Amino acid sequence: EVTIKANLIFANGSTQTAEFKGTFEKATSEAYAYADTSKKDNGEYTVDVADKGYTLNIKFAG
């Protein structure tokens, strides 16, 4: 089991951190699914992958 950390960075400057656990593939998939659901309210996003994929910096356009 691994933990994927997602740092969500919103257009207004606020941030949120979420953690997803499971296999690398499952946790990563859940992090992207979470970003997709947040996209409806926060606009399109880009992802900067860090820490060999264990940290995702997800920046929303607003």
Rank of each mutant, 00 (worst) to 15 (best):
E1F: 14
E1I: 15
V2R: 05
V2D: 03
V2I: 11
T3M: 08
T3V: 13
I4P: 00
I4C: 02
I4A: 00
K5M: 10
A6H: 01
A6I: 15
A6T: 08
A6V: 15
A6M: 14
N7H: 13
N7K: 09
N7D: 02
N7V: 15
N7L: 12
L8E: 00
L8D: 00
L8N: 00
I9E: 06
F10M: 07
F10H: 04
A11E: 07
A11I: 09
A11G: 08
N12A: 05
G13S: 05
G13P: 00
G13F: 05
G13Q: 05
G13K: 06
G13A: 05
S14F: 13
S14Q: 13
S14P: 06
Q16L: 14
Q16R: 12
T17L: 09
T17V: 12
A18M: 15
E19K: 08
E19D: 07
E19L: 14
E19V: 13
E19C: 15
F20P: 00
F20G: 00
F20R: 00
K21S: 11
G22M: 02
G22H: 03
G22T: 01
T23F: 07
T23Y: 06
T23C: 07
F24C: 08
K26N: 12
K26C: 11
K26G: 11
T28L: 15
T28Q: 09
T28V: 13
T28M: 15
T28A: 06
T28N: 06
S29E: 14
S29M: 14
S29N: 11
A31R: 01
A31W: 02
A31H: 01
A31G: 03
A31P: 01
Y32F: 12
A33K: 12
A33T: 08
Y34W: 15
Y34N: 03
Y34M: 09
A35W: 02
A35Q: 01
D36M: 08
T37F: 14
T37C: 15
T37R: 15
S38R: 15
S38P: 02
S38C: 15
S38W: 15
K39L: 07
K39T: 10
K39S: 13
K39V: 14
K40H: 11
D41I: 13
D41T: 13
D41N: 11
D41Y: 14
G43D: 04
G43I: 04
G43C: 06
G43P: 02
E44K: 07
E44Y: 09
E44R: 07
E44P: 14
E44T: 10
E44S: 12
E44D: 12
Y45W: 08
Y45R: 00
Y45G: 01
Y45M: 03
T46Q: 09
T46N: 07
T46Y: 09
V47K: 02
V47T: 06
V47R: 01
D48Y: 13
A50F: 11
D51S: 04
D51A: 04
D51T: 02
D51R: 03
D51W: 03
K52A: 14
K52P: 03
K52Q: 14
K52F: 15
G53Q: 03
G53S: 03
G53E: 03
G53K: 02
G53F: 02
Y54W: 07
Y54D: 02
T55R: 04
T55K: 04
T55L: 07
T55Q: 06
T55F: 05
T55E: 05
L56K: 00
L56R: 00
L56W: 04
L56C: 02
N57W: 11
I58P: 00
I58D: 00
I58T: 00
K59Q: 10
K59F: 15
F60Q: 01
F60D: 01
A61Q: 13
A61E: 12
A61N: 12
G62D: 08
G62P: 09
G62V: 09
G62E: 08
